[in-house]
Simulated assay, not measured.
Amino acid sequence: MTATVRARVSHGGIELLEKIDFPEGREVLVTINEIMNPEKEAVDLNDDDVWENDTFFKLAGIMDSGLGDLAKNHDKYLYGQPDK
């Protein structure tokens, strides 16, 4: 399970600003990214509007390689690795 929540540093620890739905006692890995402009809301990457104007996202699917199994044989085509 993965979650992204806002938090603040408090007395040398991390205080979550949102409730999380994880089992009590579950160990988790925490990655901390400083918010440079905390007055701005965090971007919701699940929001389709975020991706609609993203230049790199617009490039996805504009070309057809003609290979129907590109995801399955990615390493074979990119690195010349033999079939398994």
Score class of each variant (00 low, 15 high):
Met1Cys: 10
Thr2Pro: 02
Thr2Asp: 05
Ala3Trp: 03
Thr4Leu: 00
Thr4Asp: 01
Val5Lys: 02
Val5Ala: 05
Val5Ser: 00
Arg6Thr: 10
Arg6Pro: 00
Arg6Ala: 05
Ala7Gln: 00
Ala7Pro: 01
Arg8Val: 14
Val9Cys: 00
Ser10Leu: 15
His11Met: 03
Gly12Glu: 10
Gly13Cys: 04
Ile14Gln: 05
Glu15Tyr: 02
Leu16Thr: 08
Leu17Ser: 10
Leu17Gln: 13
Glu18Tyr: 04
Glu18Leu: 07
Glu18Val: 03
Glu18Met: 08
Lys19Trp: 06
Lys19Glu: 15
Asp21Leu: 10
Asp21Ser: 11
Asp21Ile: 04
Phe22Glu: 01
Phe22Lys: 03
Pro23Tyr: 07
Arg26Tyr: 08
Glu27Ala: 12
Val28Met: 06
Leu29Lys: 10
Leu29Met: 07
Val30Gln: 03
Thr31Pro: 00
Thr31Glu: 04
Thr31Arg: 04
Ile32Ser: 01
Glu34Asn: 01
Glu34Leu: 05
Glu34Asp: 07
Ile35Cys: 04
Ile35Trp: 00
Ile35Arg: 01
Met36Pro: 08
Met36Val: 15
Asn37Trp: 07
Pro38Asn: 01
Pro38Ile: 12
Lys40Ile: 08
Lys40Ser: 02
Lys40Pro: 00
Glu41Asn: 09
Glu41Arg: 10
Ala42Lys: 00
Val43Arg: 05
Asp44Lys: 10
Leu45Trp: 13
Leu45Asn: 08
Leu45Tyr: 15
Asn46Arg: 09
Asp47Met: 06
Asp47His: 01
Asp48Glu: 15
Asp48Trp: 08
Asp48Phe: 11
Asp48Val: 13
Asp49Gln: 02
Val50Ser: 01
Trp51Ala: 04
Glu52Gln: 10
Glu52Trp: 06
Glu52His: 05
Asn53Ser: 11
Asp54Gly: 11
Thr55Trp: 05
Phe56Leu: 14
Phe56Ile: 13
Phe57Ser: 15
Phe57Met: 15
Phe57Glu: 09
Lys58Trp: 07
Lys58Met: 10
Leu59Lys: 13
Ala60Tyr: 05
Gly61Val: 02
Gly61Asn: 01
Gly61Ser: 05
Ile62Leu: 15
Met63Ser: 07
Asp64Pro: 02
Asp64Trp: 12
Asp64Cys: 07
Ser65Pro: 06
Asp69Tyr: 05
Leu70Trp: 10
Ala71Trp: 12
Lys72Arg: 14
Lys72Ser: 09
Asn73Lys: 10
His74Arg: 13
His74Gly: 03
Tyr77Ile: 03
Tyr77Glu: 04
Tyr79Ser: 09
Gly80Trp: 08
Gly80Glu: 09
Gly80Tyr: 13
Gln81Glu: 15
Gln81Asp: 12
Gln81Thr: 15
Gln81Trp: 15
Gln81Ala: 13
Pro82Trp: 08
Asp83Asn: 14
Asp83Ser: 15
Asp83Cys: 08
Lys84Ala: 14
Lys84Tyr: 15
